[in-house]
Simulated scan of single mutants.
Amino acid sequence: MKKMIGAVAGVAAMLMAGSALAADSVTLQLKWVTQAQFDGYYVAKAKGYYDEAGLDVTLKPGGPDIAPEQVIAGGGADVIVDWIAAALSARDKGLPLVNIAQPFAHSGLMLTCLKSSGIKTSEDFKGKTLGVWFFGNELPFYAWMKQLGLPTEGGADGVTVIKQAFNVDPLLQKQADCISTMNYNEYNQVLEAGIPADDLVVFKYDDVGVSLLEDGLYVMEDSLKDPAFVDKMAKFVKASMKGFDYAAANPEEAAEIILDNDDTGAQTMEHQVSMAKEIAKLTEGSDGTLDMGKYEQSVKILLDAGVISKEPEGAYTTAVTDKAKAM
């Protein structure tokens, strides 16, 4: 009897091992640190959606010195989360990135200014100091400044740009009149620091006509030549969007999952819940399909600003999301 039980256990172990080996591995490089901005991916992993799809997914947090484009170029990821400005700029320079899905249907990028700086409209930017994120995040800003006809080298008729770390210190310490913020993160940090909303002037990139697609999923073009890779990415996108939908409906649970995965201990429940609720607004109605109208708007802005030198060809594919929807 013991031998039979041992044999059954051995077979079960072999089956489990075979199942584990059968899982397709996927490494995703995130654009920033572990936070609710990426709750769809963390929820999909925690709730077993990736497992159900036969995927073994590794989520790699980003940071201020991590450029997703460089990571995937070096073979450190299969797919990355990136903004279209950075992705198309990289493609224009020879890195063949392709958008396979667009989980974020809306932009959360804003420029947040102190009323005490005297800024009421964009006409008041002249002579002011503006905090800007880099590593690709500066591209929408420069597109906007070019549209406004404002030099970015300083002076009375231009703006002075400071390289902003991924925090709100320049505004709190009065080093800048305005800083870059996301509606789901840094803006709330400003409020949490004690500056009331009535003391702020906010410019949403959506509202000022330079809205660019954010947080899309990008892969290397050559990878798409493999039907098995396309199939794997379709499963990944479908499971990830299921994660975003669950997070939108359960922001508190999503925030708990984020905290469970935050190795730094820097995140707080209150802030992550707030972020999860704002992220739900950005992914609302999205199944990952790229909105061609917004894609074309983004391309036009980047072309007009000189961020890219020519109309991109082959910079997106619907093959992955088409397959995901058919699953």
Rank of each mutant, 00 (worst) to 15 (best):
Y42V: 02
W32A: 00
I84M: 09
A46N: 03
Y41H: 11
Y50S: 08
A85V: 03
Y50C: 07
G62Y: 14
L59S: 00
Y42I: 04
I80S: 01
A36M: 05
D51P: 06
K31D: 08
D39Q: 05
D51K: 14
Q35P: 03
V79A: 06
V79K: 00
F38H: 15
V81H: 14
A44K: 04
P61R: 01
Q35R: 11
Y49K: 10
A73T: 01
K45H: 07
L30M: 15
L30E: 08
Y49E: 10
K45Q: 06
Y41W: 12
L59F: 14
A53V: 03
D56W: 15
L30I: 06
Y49T: 07
A85N: 01
V57W: 15
A77R: 04
F38W: 15
D56P: 09
A67S: 06
K31N: 09
I66Q: 04
A44T: 02
Q35H: 14
K45L: 07
K47L: 10
D78S: 01
Y50W: 13
E69I: 05
Q35S: 15
K47A: 07
V81G: 09
I84T: 05
A46D: 03
P64V: 08
Y41E: 04
Q37R: 09
W32G: 03
T58W: 15
G63S: 14
K60G: 04
P61I: 05
V33L: 10
A87I: 09
A86F: 15
E69H: 09
G63F: 12
L30T: 03
G48C: 06
L30F: 13
A46F: 08
A73D: 04
A44C: 02
V81Y: 14
D65W: 11
Y49M: 12
I80E: 01
G40H: 06
D78Q: 00
G62I: 06
A87F: 11
K47F: 08
K45C: 04
Y42A: 01
A46K: 03
D82W: 13
Q37L: 13
A44H: 06
V71P: 01
Q70D: 12
A46H: 01
A44V: 02
G74A: 13
A36H: 03
P61L: 07
V81Q: 11
K31P: 03
K45N: 02
I80M: 02
K45T: 04
E52N: 12
A87H: 11
V79H: 11
E52C: 11
A67V: 01
K31F: 15
W32R: 00
G75M: 05
D39Y: 11
G40F: 12
I66M: 04
W83S: 14
I72P: 00
D65I: 12
I66C: 00
A87T: 07
D56Q: 14
D78A: 05
G76K: 05
A46T: 02
V33W: 14
G40N: 00
P64I: 08
G76F: 13
V81L: 15
D51H: 15
